[in-house]
Simulated assay, not measured.
Amino acid sequence: MITQAALPLALAFIMFAMGLTLDAGDFRRVFAAPKAMVVGLAAKLVVLPVLALALVLVWRPEPDFAVGMILLAACPAGVTSALLTHHAGGRIALAATITALTSLAATLTVPLLVNLGLGLFAGYDRSVEIPVAKMTLGIFLVDTVPLALGLGLQRLRPRVAERLGRVARPVATLLFALIVVGAFVSQRQSLMDHVGDVVPAALLLNLAAMTGAWVLGTLARLDWADRIAVVMENGLQNGALGIFVAVTLLGSPAMMVPSIVYAFVMNLTAIAFIVAVRRRRRVVTG
């Protein structure tokens, strides 16, 4: 179901659709009061990778799964993060800004952290040739370029971008679901064999990421809407990018297993978080 050609094309379309939905005015408002953005980026680019590294060092899964967990933590926010932030009552502009900036930064952060993971874990059992240049170029072409094109069209032709976005966003969400399901089908035996290794680790990482983001937001005294956005952005990962890097750039289907599992887990915890914050809002306002 996942092919070498279909996966990068689908991911590129997802990133293009994301760019179409981002408003320049929203960016300006976020940058005008950047504290929440800085907290969100710190959680995403520093806290989450550190948590993943600590978890892997303690959990000690198989080398491919260990690298896959580091790869997952290096990925930017997921394509549904802004939508789920909206349902939770968070600040959509902040969520969209963090998603865009971490997606642009992925060209650097993903190769850097995957290189670290391969050196620390996979190198113990076998010699690994790290395709840093290929990985950087691949991520740039399927992640950064399509996002920039979507942003450019939104900037130059906002009405066209709005019309395209109405169709592209649901299609992108569907493509994301198909990528995850396709990856699950192709790796179902590996998932069944190692469910006890990967599922608890993915769930623990997700809960730790969301909790860490909440603590950072609280310490920074962010308002409720900003704190929700930071939590959702830190809990939702672009699993499609993790699958693409593992399969297409690293040639290791086993390394995409953590991304597959996390993609299922993160949506369940996100829904639980939405229910919790909505219930709290009803109690406070009622």
Rank of each mutant, 00 (worst) to 15 (best):
T80G: 06
G138C: 09
D223F: 11
L53A: 10
H194I: 14
T109F: 10
V39I: 09
M210W: 09
L178W: 09
R91W: 02
V277N: 03
F31P: 02
F140Q: 08
L147N: 03
A225T: 13
T21C: 09
V277W: 08
L178M: 13
V231A: 02
I130Q: 08
L219V: 15
P76H: 00
R163D: 10
A168M: 12
G123D: 00
V265D: 11
V56S: 14
G68K: 11
D26H: 12
T144L: 05
T102P: 01
R28D: 04
V277R: 06
V198L: 09
L84T: 12
T136E: 07
T173W: 13
V160P: 12
F13L: 12
L7I: 00
L45A: 05
L84E: 12
G165N: 05
Y262W: 08
V142R: 05
P8E: 01
V215T: 14
A100F: 04
L207A: 14
S186Q: 14
A82T: 14
A6T: 10
L204C: 15
P258L: 06
R126E: 00
M15W: 06
M210E: 11
V284N: 11
G90E: 02
S103T: 06
L222F: 10
V257D: 10
M256W: 08
L71I: 10
S186E: 13
A93Y: 02
A177S: 11
T107R: 02
G40S: 08
A52Y: 02
W224C: 10
I130K: 10
G19L: 01
P146R: 01
A177P: 11
T109I: 11
R166S: 09
Q187W: 08
V39Y: 04
A5E: 15
G242W: 03
A133C: 05
R227F: 10
A105P: 05
Q187R: 14
F244N: 07
L241R: 00
V257M: 06
P111S: 05
V39W: 02
A263W: 07
A133K: 12
T99P: 01
T136G: 02
A93L: 00
S127W: 13
I98W: 01
S190G: 14
V67K: 10
L41D: 02
A43H: 00
M37L: 14
G235Q: 08
V195P: 07
N238I: 08
V215C: 10
V261S: 15
T102F: 00
L222N: 04
I92G: 01
L104A: 14
H86K: 15
R280W: 13
V284Q: 13
G25Q: 07
M255P: 03
M1E: 03
W214P: 08
G150Q: 04
L104M: 14
T97Q: 02
L151E: 03
N206F: 05
M256I: 09
A202F: 15
V277Q: 06
A33P: 06
A105T: 07
M210R: 12
A105W: 02
F176V: 11
V215F: 13
L72G: 07
I179E: 01
V277C: 10
A133F: 09
A66D: 04
R227E: 07
L55F: 07
N234W: 08
S190Y: 05
E62P: 10
L94N: 04
L205T: 13
S259Q: 09
V257Q: 03
W214V: 09
V215D: 06
H194M: 14
